[in-house]
């Protein structure tokens, strides 16, 4: 079997086919400049999503109302002088007790003669702060632990993930109740209870993502270039693993606000009398029987509105940073 070599060693020259005449390089007109970054493209997709934008508007509005509800003083200096709420939330006897909504008091007054509108506006501070702070701390604890577990593996992974499994075995609310019962009431204690039960979902999520990403060929490609491990983690692994965490965290703000309200309703949240939405529901649940619907409906509506809106935002974020989002949109 003697084969005739078709060409010489070196560049390919095939009869009847000019390799150099074919093109794999795109000679379309140069658009020049920088193409949109992923973040810019994600924002474009998000802003095209009406329900998500509506949710964002409501969330921002609630945030603004909460911040500007009453003046804020830091160390005796007023940093925020506006007062949208007509009364201080704790001021009693601004009007006769248990008045139905009227022009002077659009949301009515509660049993102690406090203005419900003022309390609902001001209460946003507690609920939103608990939601944001508890989620931020949960991400801050869960993401590093999950990343280390996934990247290092071995016994470190086993230790962290078994702890996560143990915490997962408890019902969320029961564990939070137990923690509040142990530590007592108060803003930071409530946040602590929510963080202890909240970080585990991030740890598990991030670990799974890291395990997936570290097997990607571009990670091996960076190692082949001689990039140090810590740069690979920071530049290639974490940025590719973090997208689901952003979505989860956004959605979780709603869940945490709901949990805080639930704990408040059970009398385990902030001290009674605090203008927190859940506590307000709890304090006035007896009066509902007497037909005083306004005392419970308005804080309940506030919780509903905020959780619904944050869920819409979360869904919008997920659609916006979905890695398949690009190709699906182009296919349409």
């Amino acid at each position: 079997m003697t084969r005739e070599p078709t060409t010489e060693r070196g560049r390919l020259r095939v009869r009847g086919f000019d390799a150099d005449a074919t093109t794999d390089v795109d000679w379309s007109p140069d658009r020049g400049g920088r193409t949109a970054s992923r973040r810019a493209r994600a924002w474009r997709r998000f802003s095209g999503n009406r329900t998500a934008v509506a949710g964002l508007v409501v969330v921002v509005a609630l945030l603004v109302l909460a911040v500007f509800a009453r003046p804020i003083e830091v160390a005796g200096v007023t940093v925020q002088p506006f007062a949208l709420a007509p009364y201080a939330p704790a001021t009693t006897d601004v009007a006769p007790a248990s008045q139905p909504p009227s022009l002077a008091h659009p949301f009515g007054t509660d049993w102690a003669g406090r203005d419900v509108l003022s309390r609902v506006l001001y209460g946003g501070r507690y609920s939103l702060a608990i939601g944001v702070v508890a989620v931020a701390l949960g991400v801050g604890v869960g993401v590093p632990l999950g990343a280390v577990a996934g990247y290092v593996g071995g016994w470190v992974d086993e230790a962290i993930m078994r702890l996560v499994d143990v915490l997962y075995a408890f019902p969320f609310l029961v564990l939070a109740i137990a923690l509040v019962a142990v530590f007592g009431q108060g803003f930071w204690k409530l946040v602590l209870a929510l963080v202890v039960v909240g970080w585990i979902s991030y740890a598990r999520l991030v670990r799974g993502e890291i395990l997936r990403v570290k097997e990607e060929e571009y990670v091996l490609a960076s190692r082949a270039l001689g990039v140090p491990d810590r740069s690979i983690l920071a530049r290639h692994v974490v940025p590719n693993a973090i997208a689901p965490v952003v979505v989860q965290a956004t959605l979780d703000v709603g869940t945490v606000v709901l949990s805080a309200a639930a704990l408040g309703f059970l009398g385990l949240g902030l001290p009674p009398g605090t203008a927190e939405w859940g506590s307000m529901l709890s304090a006035s649940r007896d009066t509902l029987m007497q037909g005083q619907w306004w005392v419970t409906v308005f804080p309940g509506l506030a919780i509903f509105l905020f959780v619904l809106s944050i869920n819409l935002v979360g869904d919008g974020v997920r659609d916006a940073i979905d890695p398949q989002g690009d190709s699906r949109r182009e296919a349409r």
Binding site: E217, Y218, L220
Partner: peptide
């Protein structure tokens, strides 16, 4: 150096071409 079989999976989708090529120069 190493050139991979699948050019799609061996380039990190989150970086520009300049960043990907420049990474080797930086390191």
């Amino acid at each position: 150096q190493y050139v991979f079989q699948n050019p799609t999976s061996s380039l990190d989708p989150r970086h520009t071409v300049g960043e990907l090529v420049g990474e080797a120069l930086d390191v």
